[in-house]
Computed example of a mutant assay.
Amino acid sequence: MSIRKILQYPEQVLRDETLPISNFDDSLRQLVDDMAETMYDAPGIGLAAPQIGESLKLIVVDISEDREDKQEFMAMVNPQITVHEGSQLDEEGCLSVPELTAKVKRFKKITVSYQDLEGNAMELVTEDRFAVVLQHEIDHLNGILFIDHLSSLKRNLYKKKVKKWLAHSS
């Protein structure tokens, strides 16, 4: 396992459409292990493959009951939201969008179809906070960042902030 670099906005790969995964082999398991280690090192509760420069439909999410005690995660290959209902407003942040948190409107309850690491078809119904995490990570697979859900004013203020950072770092 190795910790990978988390790419940050405005990296282009974060905006690209990802490719479905069809090979369920050791290299996929290695990528999942790297993503989990990277996510926990950050520290985060979810990570999508594009965030480490891989344009693949793959996410890992923390499912630990108590993050202090034991780290447990699940990998979802080719995840898709198939059913959604209700709405909720929750505070979000993103490892690829540093120094910004904001309230984002998401579905309250979702059904996600995905494959496990062996390629088996799976389905998960979830709601509340875990539904938010999954929607956030699945958005990454479609080139959508959580700032895209913000008002144009908030989004433009953040873009100006990033331009200043980039100007000072070059």
Rank of each mutant, 00 (worst) to 15 (best):
Glu118Phe: 05
Asp26Leu: 14
Leu134Met: 03
Asp139Leu: 08
Ile110Asp: 04
Phe24Arg: 03
Lys159Glu: 15
Gln30Ile: 07
Ala131Gln: 00
Glu85Ile: 08
Val32Asn: 00
Lys161Gly: 02
Val60Arg: 05
Pro98Asn: 11
Glu11Asn: 15
Gln80Leu: 15
Val61Tyr: 11
Met1Ser: 14
Val60Cys: 05
Arg106Glu: 07
His168Gln: 15
Gln12Met: 14
Glu17Val: 04
Glu127Lys: 15
Ser96Lys: 11
Leu89His: 13
Gln80His: 13
Asp90Gly: 04
Gly93Glu: 07
Leu89Arg: 13
Leu124Arg: 09
Ser96Ala: 12
Thr82Arg: 12
Ile63Thr: 15
Ile81His: 07
Glu137Gln: 11
His149Ser: 10
Asp25Gly: 01
Thr18Cys: 14
Gln8His: 14
Val112Met: 03
Asn23Trp: 09
Gly143His: 11
Ser113Cys: 05
His140Ala: 00
Gly86Pro: 09
Ser113Pro: 03
Leu19Phe: 12
Gln8Thr: 15
Ile3Gly: 01
Ile138His: 00
Lys154Ile: 13
Val83Ile: 07
Glu54His: 11
Ser113Leu: 10
Phe146Arg: 06
Glu11Tyr: 10
Ser151Trp: 11
Leu134Thr: 01
Gly44Thr: 07
Ser2Trp: 00
Glu137Met: 05
Lys154His: 12
Pro79Arg: 00
Met39Ile: 00
Asn156Arg: 14
Glu127Pro: 05
His84Met: 12
Asp116Arg: 08
Ser151Glu: 09
Ser151Gly: 14
Glu127Cys: 06
Val104Ile: 15
Val125Leu: 06
Gln88Phe: 01
Asp25Phe: 07
Asn120Asp: 09
Leu117His: 11
Ser87Asp: 14
Asp34Ala: 01
Lys57Gly: 02
Tyr40Lys: 07
Met1Ala: 08
Pro10Gly: 06
Thr18Asn: 07
Gly46Ser: 04
Asp139Val: 08
Leu100His: 09
Thr111Ala: 12
